[in-house]
């Protein structure tokens, strides 16, 4: 298990404050928040690209400076303008040379040819966003990562390819039993595959809970359903909940003696609730 405790990092116009969370093997953790909330900063601290001012990262109880110290970390970000004048074959040959022992060429070919249907004679700059994500993901997976960190990789993908990539990620987390931390601002993606959600806003983690618990606790209810409730419950929901479009969102676990009425809230509703609450 990966434990992250009290990470702090201050930039001119942004502060990551006491970020703490856990990552479990075989689980996909969704790191969600608006642009500039601190998702990328957390990921960059975890892979050692940014040094935190304080805080601890530990793997199975052993403290490390970054995850790469003990684990083979796979990392794919949305920023994939890497050696864009080179062909995929040249770039993968370079990565293969560097990661000699870790690199599994058969696995790389499998992802490239069978899973992603990519021909490696194209230059990076000739690839669409989706193709780039697939290519860099194939390279990271060929290193047989023990932990996979993904920074907004699905942002620029069309819905069909997004689903395809999400299925692959889910398969990897489960089959290889590795922790996957995936940052995104697309709640639908995380709702599909995440086991746990970490919600970050303005550098502060506001929620860390399993998707199951979130669905148990947060509800949405429309005016019609609300009107059928008892006076006291209705007043509590109106008082503690927020109005989101045509319905109210509320945290049933945060209101004493309230019956769970309505339907489980969508992740986007929960995030709005947390943000506005």
């Amino acid at each position: 298990m990966i434990e992250v405790r009290n990470l702090n990092k201050t930039y001119k116009s942004f502060k990551l404050g006491n970020a703490s969370f856990d990552l479990e093997s075989g689980e996909i953790t969704g790191l969600i928040g608006v642009n500039g909330a601190g998702k990328s900063t957390i990921l960059r601290i975890l892979i050692g690209l940014v040094k935190s001012e304080s805080g601890e990262i530990s793997i199975d109880g052993n403290k490390v400076l970054d995850l790469g110290e003990k684990l083979r970390v796979g990392f794919v970000s949305q920023e994939l303008n890497i050696y864009s004048d080179q062909k995929m074959s040249a770039l993968s040959a370079f990565v293969k040379d560097i990661y000699r022992k870790q690199w599994n060429d058969g696995l790389f070919r499998h992802y490239m040819n069978d899973v992603f249907a990519l021909k490696d004679d194209l230059k990076i700059k000739e690839l669409s966003t989706g193709m780039r994500v697939k290519f860099f993901l194939a390279m990271e997976l060929a290193k047989k990562p023990e932990c996979l960190l993904l920074d907004e990789v699905t942002s620029g993908l069309d819905p069909m390819i997004r689903d395809e990539v999400l299925d692959i990620l889910q398969g990897i987390a489960q089959e290889d039993n590795i922790p996957v931390l995936m940052s995104s601002h697309i709640t639908e993606d995380l709702e599909k595959i995440a086991d746990k959600i970490i919600y970050i806003d303005s550098g502060r983690i506001l929620l860390e809970d399993s998707v199951e618990n979130i669905k148990k606790n947060y509800y949405r209810i429309n005016e019609e359903e609300l009107s059928k409730l008892g006076e006291e419950t209705r007043a509590l929901i109106l008082d503690k909940g927020i109005k989101q479009h045509q319905y109210y969102v509320y945290d049933a676990s945060g209101i004493e003696n309230v019956e769970k009425a309505g339907s489980p809230a969508l992740l986007s509703d929960v995030l709005s609730f947390l943000r506005r609450g």
Binding site: L49, E79, L80, N81, I82, Y83, S84, Q86, Y99
Partner: peptide
């Protein structure tokens, strides 16, 4: 010139040695 982008720099910085 090819390495003068944040993406490529980060890519290289994550590599061993």
């Amino acid at each position: 010139n090819a390495e003068d982008s944040k993406d490529t720099r980060d890519f290289l910085r994550r590599m061993p040695q």
